[in-house]
Simulated scan of single mutants.
Amino acid sequence: MFDVVDVVPDSDAWLDERRASVGASEVAAVMGLSPYSTALDIYKSKSGIDREFDPLLSFVGHASEPIIAEWVEKFSGVQVTLEPAFMARSIEYPFLHASFDRLSSDPFTTWQFKTAHFYTGHKWDEGIPTDVRVQVQAEMLVAGTQRAAVVVWIGGREFKLFWEQRDNVFIEDHMIPALTKFWVDLQAGIAPQASTVAEISEAWHDSGDEMEAPEELQQRIEQRAFLLATAKEAEEDAKKIQVELGQFMLDHNVEVFTVGGKKLLTYKRQAGRASFDQKRLREERPDVAAEYTTQGAPFMVMRTIKPKETKK
């Protein structure tokens, strides 16, 4: 079902192995289901261009694994002995690999450990987040298992254990086709389409050309303008509610609303931002202004041009 890849985590050999196939933790990005990475990010990584890597996050992740494993064995209520895990490459789909956090026997089961900040722990309230579920489904595909365990350590004090059942429909109808296409395109040097504004900006090249907008894009342009206008109206409505809430708090001389003893809303004065009068400096000390002025990088701006009304 899989071959064991004998490499030391975070070593050069480990990095080379990761470049040679898609990792289970990268599958959600390839499928457009990750809030953190895109298919183009993964494409660049496999091509040797990695995003900035935070070694502290890696350290915290690895350092937390023994603590989570001990919680599982002592406090989770599951009678299980966890064993060290490894990197494995699928034999049937050699473009896919997985790095399990722990393993258990009878039956053979993979374990995935996660940590979450106190302020992001709510993402686990309804179960395993989508991107992690996709990762675990990919791990089950590599391991050939029917069930996997996921444990999250939230805010350094709360643990949650989830069991994820294998979803063959998702794997066969969606995951495998997406991964196969991505890998075939990668070998052919065909990059995924941009999926963020930042990626569009990076790929942009100025042409100055014009063309008649296709009818279907005219509808999308109108839809975008409508959404922007709606967002602006919603912001104005939110300000009206803020006035209503603020007046009530002012009348009752309170700064904090609570529910069940927990903070729900605060309204407090903050120190004003310090500002710098660039115009005055340019007028009074143009030499100093020129010396300390740097030109920012160009950025993309999309504007909808409203037709001018014809005067009668």
Rank of each mutant, 00 (worst) to 15 (best):
F100P: 02
D12T: 08
V256C: 08
L250D: 14
K279H: 12
K239I: 13
D206A: 08
F226C: 10
M302I: 13
L96Q: 03
R133M: 01
Q223V: 09
D106Y: 07
L245A: 01
S195Y: 00
A88W: 01
P94Y: 04
S207C: 02
L281F: 05
Q193R: 08
A39D: 01
D12Q: 09
E212P: 14
R282I: 11
K306V: 14
E291Q: 15
K279G: 10
A143K: 03
P298W: 01
Q278Y: 10
F276H: 10
E70D: 13
G260M: 01
E212F: 10
P298D: 00
T310C: 15
Q165A: 12
V4L: 13
E126Q: 11
V259Q: 13
L96R: 03
T81C: 12
I68Q: 05
A116T: 05
A213C: 13
A116H: 03
R280D: 12
E202V: 07
V27E: 00
T145Q: 05
D6H: 11
I241D: 07
P66W: 01
R19C: 01
A238Y: 09
A28R: 00
A289F: 12
P84V: 06
P66Q: 01
K263R: 14
A88D: 03
S76Y: 05
V22A: 01
V22G: 00
K240R: 15
D50S: 14
F108Q: 09
A234Q: 11
A178L: 04
T110C: 07
Y292E: 07
A98S: 08
G144P: 00
E255F: 09
Q218S: 11
K308S: 08
P307H: 06
K268Y: 06
W163H: 13
R133N: 02
D16R: 14
R273P: 09
D10M: 09
L57W: 11
R285P: 10
M302H: 13
K46T: 03
W124R: 05
V256S: 04
E17I: 06
I241A: 06
K279C: 13
D131R: 07
A297D: 15
V7Y: 02
L179M: 09
D185K: 06
A148F: 02
D277S: 10
D10I: 06
H62I: 04
V22M: 03
L264P: 05
R273M: 10
A191S: 14
D41M: 02
V78Q: 15
V254Y: 05
R224S: 10
S104Y: 04
G77N: 06
L40G: 03
V256T: 15
V152T: 04
L96G: 01
E172T: 11
K46G: 00
L250Q: 15
G121W: 04
K262H: 06
K46Q: 12
A203C: 08
K268L: 08
S37M: 09
I221H: 08
E233D: 15
K279S: 12
F118K: 15
M140A: 02
M87C: 08
E202C: 06
Q79S: 09
R147M: 07
Q223D: 15
S45Y: 04
F226Y: 12
T81W: 09
V288D: 08
W111A: 00
K46H: 11
I241Y: 07
Y267D: 12
T294S: 15
G208S: 05
T304D: 14
A274K: 13
K74W: 07
T180R: 14
F299R: 09
A234K: 14
I171A: 02
A88V: 06
A274Y: 11
M175V: 01
T293E: 07
